[in-house]
Simulated assay, not measured.
Amino acid sequence: MSPLEMALLVHRGEFHLRELEPELPLEKFLKNADPKKTRKFLEKCGKEELERQKELIRKHNVKLVSFWEDDYPQHLREIRYPPAVLFVRGDAELLKEKCVGVVGTRRPTSYGVNVTKRFVKLLSEYFVIVSGMAFGIDSVAHKEALSSGGKTVAVLGTGVDVVYPRSNERLFHEIVKNGCVVSEYPMGTRARKHHFPARNRIIAGLSDAIIVTEAPIKSGALITVKFALESGRDVFAVPGDIDRKTSEGTNYLIKSGAYPLTDEEDLETHFGIRRIASPSLDDDKKKIYDLLRSSPKTVDELVEELGWSVSEVLRVISEMELMGMIWFDGGAYRLLG
């Protein structure tokens, strides 16, 4: 059987991976297969559907990788329910590289956005960043990986020819060009609610570790964590305000044993990586940088501790913001990366 035929058996006939016999021709397999599933497959997938799928695969330059091929990611092979076939657009080799999954809420605060950028900026120097291309933290993680010169993989709950959400169309094509999009679903598959929890197991399976930067207690990100823990992956969570809904999930994960992620040193220590040295700073910027290393500061606090005028402080922090070194959140300036 071809990988396409196997994918259609799973998603049109509802066969399980363990039932497939890839060494057999499709016709011979169906003769001895479960009659109910065979009937369902044949009703939904005649010769016309096979040809339509083949045409879409050619049109979008899609690579299919089955569970039984050497190109199938080893990490993904180890999860409880590995997909039978992957549909891949872009650089399929990225699926075999070291990956870190970054996930979170679809409605992040500025805090969630900025801590995601901060940690992805570091991680993308050493790992492929994996996420689900949803609104919010997923999109921030993909965009930051690309803008930092790294690579990223988007795992979809649709076919790899279907952009969802539509507002991420530009991001989708950037990922295809500079990373890859991957799905277990046949071409043309539209978004359905149950696809996304299933998609999350692939994010967990591809990743060496999962990082949750901001998430409420009822979040798809926590479903990804569940799959990650089942597969023996490390889980990190960024702590947040105890009275903020979007931090309830991450704070719960930390209480439950996830690694608390509070700065870059946590990642450097865990993964054994060393950061590339920061660009040299003039004396004024270095003074502010050193103060912000200890804790976030307001403008008034910087004025008081440095003994500078307000205009001097504002001039230097404006330059540092333009350099992408600091960001303003909750009334105070913080280091970014």
Rank of each mutant, 00 (worst) to 15 (best):
S278G: 11
G324A: 02
S147V: 06
I137Q: 09
V85R: 01
V310H: 12
E312I: 01
H60G: 09
C45I: 06
P108F: 02
H173K: 10
V155I: 10
I317E: 04
R275W: 06
I202D: 01
A92M: 10
V62R: 01
V162W: 07
Q53L: 12
F328K: 02
S247H: 09
L95E: 13
F87Y: 14
T262F: 12
I326D: 05
V212A: 05
E21S: 14
N114L: 09
S147E: 15
M6L: 14
L206F: 12
G188E: 10
E49T: 02
L42T: 03
D241R: 15
P83K: 09
I317P: 08
R89H: 12
R275C: 02
A33F: 09
G337N: 00
Y126C: 03
I202H: 06
L94E: 04
P73W: 12
G240F: 04
K285Y: 13
V120D: 10
P165T: 06
F67L: 01
F15S: 03
A228R: 07
Y81I: 13
Y81T: 15
N168E: 04
F172S: 03
R18E: 11
S124R: 11
Y81Q: 14
A237Q: 14
S207C: 07
G149E: 01
G159E: 08
D300W: 02
V85A: 08
D70Y: 13
V299F: 11
S139D: 06
H60F: 12
G307P: 04
L281Y: 07
F172T: 08
H16I: 02
P25D: 10
I211V: 04
E305F: 08
R106T: 04
E78C: 00
V303C: 13
K44T: 03
K287D: 06
R293A: 12
R190Y: 11
T158N: 14
A215D: 05
G331C: 13
Y333C: 05
E43V: 03
G157Y: 02
H173P: 00
R107V: 07
V65W: 05
R80F: 12
D282F: 10
F15W: 10
P296E: 09
L261C: 02
V120C: 08
E304P: 00
A84S: 15
G104H: 05
E304V: 00
E319C: 00
K151A: 10
R118I: 00
S219R: 01
V162L: 08
L123R: 04
Q53W: 11
K255A: 00
E93G: 06
P3W: 05
Y81G: 07
D34Y: 07
A134P: 03
I217S: 02
I276F: 13
S207H: 05
Y185W: 10
E69Y: 13
W327F: 07
V153W: 11
L24E: 11
V299S: 05
V313K: 12
W68L: 06
Q53K: 10
G159S: 10
F15C: 11
